[in-house]
Design a protein around this nucleic acid. Structure first.
Lengths: 260, 260
DNA sequence: TGTACATCAGTGAACGCGCGTTCACTGATGTAC
DNA sequence: TGTACATCAGTGAACGCGCGTTCACTGATGTAC
């Protein structure tokens, strides 16, 4: 919560671990309540109907009081976005961490399903972060760390798993800019390191660029599928989508070269 | 345009081909202008900022005058949605039709790129139809024919092309509900028939269900990629996305079994 | 431990805005005879 | 061809609504001496 007034640690800022004053505890509590209520409205009506006045009303406060906690509506939105990214990232991380001895493919499966499950359970929060951008809203840089978590968890699976050479055409160089993009991503992943991976994985040379390119395809496929399901685009074809999703996850695992 | 008042052909309705009165011509013209201006605002600020009052203002009319053309804001939105689906469908159809002698893979490529090109040229119209649903808005049944056009063009490529058996695991039955869904889609495609396909294609037994399942994966992958690109989710990884897109299109063509 | 002052949460009124939709109306266009 | 009536596009005012944000204020909590 970088945007609340009290948390930009000034001269009298609170040190981590220090005992909190009653005022601080109340402030933290109410900040939480505001976000909870905002999330409730988000779930009920979507992001653009989120209104400070309605949140305040529901909390029994006067609307101007919210400005003690969030300097503007956009800052409240930003807080929700960060929380959503963090919740999704935590789900993916937990799904992987829950299977310490499992092979790469089992972790891949777990991660993909965790992402979908979270999206289905929180469709409006999913739409907030992966749906059409809210016009006039610019996501501030504070969001990027949280946004990266799920991608790091996803790619970390490949970084830590043995891969068979996926296709006969992967000797061919990647086309144009994609070569450099895949290369850079591989290095980023190696640098970020999958949190639950052992030291050996961190020393691994990362994911080979051809695999990284395939992983990018799988990545966009995963979210494309989830978005289509949530946004009603599969009605009349693959709805309900559970089996289709499971099938696609396996196909994509093959596609990136995870052995069965 | 089923929702304008004059077009629900009543007792004095206009017959197709009949000479239009000056009033009718004026009405058609203004209906077009309203939609054009609405599209302009859509492009500038997105769907939820589309306001009847602003459209009227820009057209030099009084806001209540628009109600002679569209009974409500939602009806105007519906008209824009139908137009967007039709424009996208027409692009895809044209891209395929422009290559009458080409093989399946060339048509696949052309179709995928046409879809992306249209999306990049009309990002807000794309978001209108494939982005997060507008809360409180229910797409009426009039939209589904237009929505299906692009899918029919896409699947029609597979229906008319020779395919090699895509993977060794395609002898295995499709899991759960997916089997029936793929089966039904194959029949739908065979029934709808690709408009530019010759009679022989219409007599073809359609697309085998395992291929149809793979096509569904490719379908969601295609739109997932485009959405990620347009909604800014590829910034920092595969942006600019041209080469990545081209690469993915080829991989997906392999994936569905189109010979090179 | 007690007092004086500073900080802060919450109030209530107000500003200024834009929206969708309805309604009674005027005047022009079209139609039937 | 001319007249009487019906249809329809567009006007202008109004209703009722909700929004984000500002501001001067009160009273409670926290802090320094």
């Amino acid at each position: 919560m970088t945007m609340t007034q009290a948390s930009d640690d000034g001269p009298a800022g609170r040190r981590p671990g220090a005992a909190l004053t009653a005022r601080q505890r109340a402030r933290d509590q109410i900040t939480r309540e505001i976000k909870e209520e905002a999330r409730r409205q988000l779930a009920a009506q979507g992001a653009q109907r989120l209104s400070l006045r309605a949140v305040a009303r529901e909390l029994g406060m006067v609307s101007s009081a919210l400005y003690r906690y969030f300097p503007s509506r956009d800052d409240l939105l930003t807080a929700l976005i960060i929380d959503a990214y963090d919740a999704l990232g935590a789900s993916a991380e937990a799904a992987v961490a829950r299977r310490p001895g499992a092979g790469g493919r089992a972790r891949w499966r777990a991660c993909c399903h965790a992402i979908r499950d979270w999206a289905i359970a929180s469709p409006h929060e999913y739409a907030l972060i992966y749906g059409s951008p809210v016009p006039g809203y610019q996501a501030p840089p504070e969001t990027i760390d949280s946004a990266a978590r799920v991608a790091v968890a996803f790619a970390g699976i490949l970084a830590g798993a043995p891969l068979r050479s996926p296709g006969p055409d992967d000797d061919r160089p990647l086309p144009g800019l994609l070569a450099g993009q895949a290369e850079k991503l591989s290095q980023d992943i190696a640098r970020a390191g999958a949190p639950p991976a052992p030291a050996s994985a961190r020393l691994a040379p990362g994911v080979p660029p051809p695999v990284m390119a395939r992983a990018l395809v799988a990545w966009t496929q995963l979210f494309g599928m989830i978005s289509f399901e949530l946004f009603g685009q599969l009605v009349g074809s693959a709805d309900p989508a559970d089996d289709f999703f499971g099938y696609a996850v396996e196909q994509m695992a093959d596609f990136v070269g995870l052995p069965a």
